[in-house]
Design a protein around this nucleic acid. Structure first.
Length: 360
DNA sequence: CCCATTTGACCCCG
DNA sequence: CGGGGTCAAATGGG
C-alpha cells in the first residue's frame, strides 16, 4: 500500500490505528465464523467481516486521497494560489473517475433506466468523434441544493451493442453510501424529483424493447456523504443478490461471498464479479425496521472496470426503457423496493464515513 | 405551472 | 482550431 506523502503523520497514525482495529476485529469475526454453527450466525459474521474489510479499505483509500485535498492541520501550505476551501475546490481532473461497462441483457424488464440508485439529471448529449452513438451527460440532481459534483457519462459501445459504458466522476465509490442511507432510512426523507436515468444515447431508436443491463454498483454521489440523491430506496434495493433464495449450500456460499467480496478490494481494473451479497438481507436495521431489504433475485453478471466498483456488493441493475424517454420517478422504485444499507450497523459518524469537508 | 430532457450554442483546453 | 464538456433556452410531459 502506498501511503500518501502529504498525509499528515498524525492523521496517518490515526488511520493506522483505525485500520488495525478494524482488521483485528475482522480477524476475530473470521475465527468465530469458522466455528459458527447456525447459518444466521455465519451470515452475521460474514457481514461483520466484510464490514471490517470494507471500512479498513475505505480508510486506506481515503488516505490516498488526502494529498489531493489538503486538509486542515495536515499541510497548511497549499501550493494552490486560490484560497477557496479545498474541500469544495475540485478540479475535474482530480476527481475520481470510474468507468464501468454495463451489459444489456436481453429479455428482461424495461421499466427502469439507468437506475443506479442515484439521481441524475441529464444536461447534455454529444456526438463523439468516431463513435457511433452519442454520449449522454448527467449530473447529480442535487448539484444545486447540495453541491454534489457527481457526474456521469453514458455512452453506448460501438463494438458491442450490448455494452454501455458509464463513467462516473466526482464520486466516492465507497462508504459514503452508508451514512446517506442510514440517515435517510432513519428519517425517511425522500426527496422529490429524483431522476433515474434519462434516455440512453444510441439506444433510443434501435433499442431492444426488452433491455436490461447490469452493472457494478455505481458510486454514491459523494459530497461529504450528505448528499441525498442516492435514495435509500435505491441504494441496496436492486442489489443483485444471487442465490439468496437458493438457500442451499449456504454455508459454502458464505465463504464464497467473502472470498469474492474481499477479492474485489483488489485494486485492479477489469474485475469480473459475481457478487452475491445475501448478507445484506438480514433486516435488522437499527434505525427503522420499516425498511427491510427485500432482495430480488437477479442473475448477476456484470463487469466493472473500476477498482472498488463492487466493494459493497451493492450492485444495481440497469433497466433501459425501450423508448428514449427518460424514466423518471419521484420517489418510488419499482414495486417492492425496500431500503436498507448493506451495512446496517455502519456508523455514519465514523471518522472516515462522511468525508466531512472533503471532496475528491 | 413545474421541472426534466432536448438540443444547439458556447466555452475551454490541448 | 477542433473536440469534448457544459450551458441554457426551448420543449414537452405530468
Amino acid at each position: 500500500m502506498e501511503k500518501n506523502h502529504s498525509t499528515s503523520s498524525g492523521e496517518w497514525e490515526k488511520m493506522k490505528k483505525e485500520i488495525n482495529e478494524l482488521m483485528t476485529e475482522g480477524r476475530d469475526y473470521a475465527h468465530q465464523f469458522g466455528s459458527a454453527s447456525s447459518q444466521e450466525t455465519r451470515e452475521h459474521l460474514a457481514k461483520k467481516i466484510l464490514e471490517s474489510y470494507h471500512k479498513s479499505l475505505t480508510i486506506m483509500n481515503y488516505s490516498g486521497e488526502l494529498d489531493q485535498v489538503s486538509h486542515g492541520g495536515g499541510s497548511p501550505k497549499s501550493d494552490d494560489s486560490d484560497q477557496e476551501p479545498l474541500a469544495i475546490k475540485s478540479s475535474k481532473k482530480s476527481m475520481p473517475r470510474w468507468t464501468s461497462k454495463v451489459r444489456i441483457a436481453p429479455g428482461t424488464g424495461i421499466d427502469r433506466t439507468l437506475d443506479d440508485g442515484f439521481c441524475w439529471r441529464k444536461y447534455g448529449q454529444k456526438d463523439i468523434l468516431g463513435a457511433k452513438f452519442p454520449r449522454g451527460y448527467y449530473r447529480c440532481t442535487y448539484r444545486k441544493s447540495q453541491g454534489c459534483e457527481a457526474t456521469r457519462q453514458v455512452q453506448r459501445s460501438d463494438e458491442n451493442q450490448m455494452l454501455i459504458e458509464i463513467s462516473y466522476r466526482g464520486i466516492h465509490f465507497f462508504l459514503i453510501t452508508h451514512p446517506q442511507v442510514n440517515s435517510q432510512v432513519a428519517t425517511g426523507v425522500r426527496e422529490r424529483n429524483c431522476v433515474w436515468g434519462g434516455s440512453i444515447p444510441g439506444l433510443d431508436q434501435q433499442g431492444d424493447p426488452s433491455n436490461q443491463t447490469r452493472t457494478t454498483r455505481p458510486p454514491p454521489c459523494g459530497y461529504r456523504g450528505i448528499h441525498s440523491c442516492s435514495q435509500a430506496a435505491n441504494v441496496g434495493t436492486t442489489m443483485p443478490i444471487q442465490n439468496l433464495e437458493t438457500n442451499q449450500t449456504q454455508e459454502h456460499e458464505n465463504h464464497d461471498i467473502m472470498k469474492e467480496s474481499l477479492g474485489n478490494y483488489n485494486h485492479q481494473a477489469h474485475l469480473h464479479h459475481n457478487l452475491h451479497y445475501p448478507l445484506s438481507s438480514t433486516p435488522n436495521l437499527e434505525n427503522n425496521n420499516a425498511y427491510m431489504l427485500q432482495l430480488r433475485d437477479h442473475n448477476t453478471e456484470f463487469f466493472g472496470s473500476t477498482s472498488f466498483s463492487s466493494d459493497l456488493g451493492t450492485n444495481i441493475n440497469y433497466n433501459f426503457p425501450a423508448s428514449g424517454s427518460a424514466s423518471h420517478s419521484t420517489s418510488n422504485s419499482p414495486s417492492t423496493v425496500p431500503l436498507e444499507s448493506p451495512f446496517e450497523s455502519f456508523d455514519p459518524n465514523h471518522p472516515y464515513g462522511g468525508f466531512g469537508g472533503f471532496y475528491s
